[in-house]
Computed example of a mutant assay.
Amino acid sequence: MSGLGAFWGLYKREVVKIYRRAFALVMTFIQPIVWIVFFGSSLNGMPRQYLVQFFGTPNYIGFILPGQLATSMLFTGTFSSMSVVWDRRFGFLKKILVTPAPREAIFFSKVMGAVTRGLIQIPVMLLAAAAFGVPLPLDPLGYLEWIAALVLLGVGFSSIYLAVAMRSSDWQLPQLVANILNLPLMFTSTALFPRNFYPSWMQAIAAVNPITFATEIGRGVVLNDPYAPTLLGYLAVFAAISTAVGLLVAKRFMTAE
Rank of each mutant, 00 (worst) to 15 (best):
A240Y: 09
F29Q: 08
A191H: 03
I160W: 10
L43G: 00
F23L: 15
R89T: 12
A101W: 02
P58Y: 01
K251H: 15
R21Q: 15
F38D: 01
D139E: 05
R21S: 15
S41E: 01
E216N: 12
P102V: 04
G233M: 06
A244W: 10
F132L: 12
A6K: 03
S200G: 11
M27E: 13
K94E: 14
L248H: 15
L181N: 07
L10N: 08
P100C: 03
S200H: 12
A128W: 02
P226K: 08
F193R: 00
L25M: 14
A129S: 10
F157N: 09
L185I: 11
V151I: 12
V37C: 03
L181H: 06
T255A: 12
L152N: 03
N224R: 15
P135S: 04
P123A: 04
D225C: 07
T212C: 04
L185C: 09
F238Q: 05
I18W: 13
A207P: 08
V221R: 01
V52E: 14
F38K: 04
T215L: 02
Y161V: 12
V221L: 00
S109Y: 08
P174T: 03
I18P: 10
D139F: 01
I18H: 13
Q203I: 00
K251D: 13
F157T: 12
F193N: 01
R20S: 12
R13N: 10
P199G: 00
G218V: 00
Y161C: 08
P140N: 03
L235H: 00
F38R: 05
L25H: 07
V98W: 01
P47S: 06
P137R: 06
F79K: 14
F75T: 15
Y60F: 09
I106D: 07
P184I: 07
A149E: 02
Q121G: 11
Y19E: 06
A250N: 06
G56P: 03
L248V: 13
G142T: 02
Y161Q: 14
M46L: 15
G113N: 11
S158P: 11
F75M: 15
S169H: 10
Y198S: 10
V134L: 00
L185M: 15
I205K: 08
L181G: 07
F197I: 05
L10Q: 10
I241K: 11
F157Y: 15
S80K: 08
P66R: 05
A114I: 11
W86E: 14
P229L: 04
L152A: 09
S189W: 05
A239T: 09
Y234R: 12
N44E: 05
Q121Y: 07
S169Q: 11
S109V: 06
L4T: 11
I205M: 10
A214M: 00
L43D: 01
L65Y: 04
P135K: 05
V26R: 12
V151D: 03
N224T: 12
S41A: 09
L223C: 04
M82P: 12
M112T: 09
R219N: 00
F92T: 14
Y50N: 14
I160H: 07
G56H: 02
F63Q: 02
N182Y: 11
T243M: 11
M202L: 13
V124R: 07
K17M: 13
F187R: 06
M125C: 02
Q175M: 15
T215S: 04
G220F: 03
L183S: 13
R167Y: 13
I180E: 08
A128H: 07
R20Y: 10
G233R: 08
M186F: 14
T116D: 11
L183K: 10
A206L: 03
R103S: 09
T190W: 05
